[in-house]
Design a protein around this nucleic acid. Structure first.
Lengths: 188, 188
DNA sequence: ATCATTTGTATGCTATAACGCACAAGACGG
DNA sequence: CCGTCTTGTGCGTTATAGCATACAAATGAT
């Protein structure tokens, strides 16, 4: 997040110009007076949430896009090798390769997990609203969710609530490798 | 989006109560007077973007979470089998299995791509702010980004801008399978 | 019980968001 | 050159966001 006022004024004007709208046209579309629109664009006024709402709906954009400067820049290409990142935390039986850690602007983390034969773990519910994605890359495993164990073969994916009791286990005799996305709602 | 006023008042109070803060404590943390805080929580006042900013930073949450009602709930567990979903669009040489299509509240789509030997494709830049993640599940391939071809072996991942010219090719003699996440910025 | 402390709400006041209208600068055609 | 239209900005008024303070109800301690 940054200073919102400057961002708001700039993007608002940019959007309007992009559509070729005059202040009058924008006023008609949003229900906000053109005088106020001009002041906001010039940074002389900081609108209330009510008018912010009118602006967003009138322009058909999200409130977020008006408030949060989206690309915090520095969008560099990143390359990760799971082989190099993989490590065994504490108890083991499982290895984790944190490919792309959580970043607020994306809202999720992305990693590779390896479950060795016999591994089993029941996880406490996370923060409310968390959603987990799992794709089985090799081997087979089972996910506990909605009160039963769900078998997943290679190539299968599952999406389930992370804020409910859930678990992972590998009852096969070869290791299971999965890709995991954990999406957090509230921090976005 | 919904009526923001009610959402704001409710969530603001919920967050404050969740932390066990009094109006005084919240006022100290945010820099907004407790009288105003009370009015906002009661829906009697619609704050300006400036104070909305103070609230978000003081409570250490995103502006978005205060403005946009997040998950409409009903988070059912979903299971996808790439084998069943996989299909070849048009020209072919590539197969796509759309595991989890785009949903606004998550902000990304998630799919499996298969590139057959000899496949090559240069992609036009997408919408600005788009970021792509690719993990090579099997085989090897190359990604064109930042003006050169980046080789990726099995197990390697890359993250790059989708709003710049980029491409995919498979110069090996076995097919390459990758998992792809395409993240869209604040699209509505 | 009584007093002190902490809670949220109500009050009066100032700053400013928001409106409608009027105005000045440029564009275009006559 | 002169109307006429469109653009954005300036002005005066009203509505309300925002603050500081005072107040009433609840909580707690002795």
């Amino acid at each position: 997040m940054q200073d919102p006022a400057k961002h708001l004024s700039k993007t608002l004007k940019a959007i309007r110009k992009d559509r070729g709208w005059s202040l009058d046209a924008a006023a008609a579309a949003t229900g906000v007076s053109k005088a106020m629109l001009g002041q906001i664009e010039r940074g002389e006024s900081s609108p209330t949430t009510a008018t912010l709402w009118k602006l967003a709906t009138g322009f058909q954009v999200s409130v977020t896009s008006l408030m949060e400067p989206l690309p915090p820049g520095a969008e560099k290409t990143l390359i990760r090798d799971a082989e190099a990142l993989r490590h065994l935390p504490g108890d083991s039986g499982m290895a984790v390769a944190p490919l792309f850690p959580f970043e607020p602007r994306f809202g999720f983390e992305y990693m590779e997990l390896t479950f060795h034969p016999g591994y089993k773990r029941l996880s406490e519910p996370h923060e409310v609203g968390v959603v987990e994605y799992i794709t089985v890359i090799s081997g087979e495993m089972e996910i506990f969710t909605d009160d039963n164990w769900q078998p997943l073969k290679t190539g299968m994916s599952i999406r389930f609530r992370g804020d409910a009791p859930h678990g992972y286990r590998n009852r096969g005799d070869e290791k299971a490798v999965v890709m995991t996305i954990i999406h957090y709602p509230t921090r976005r």
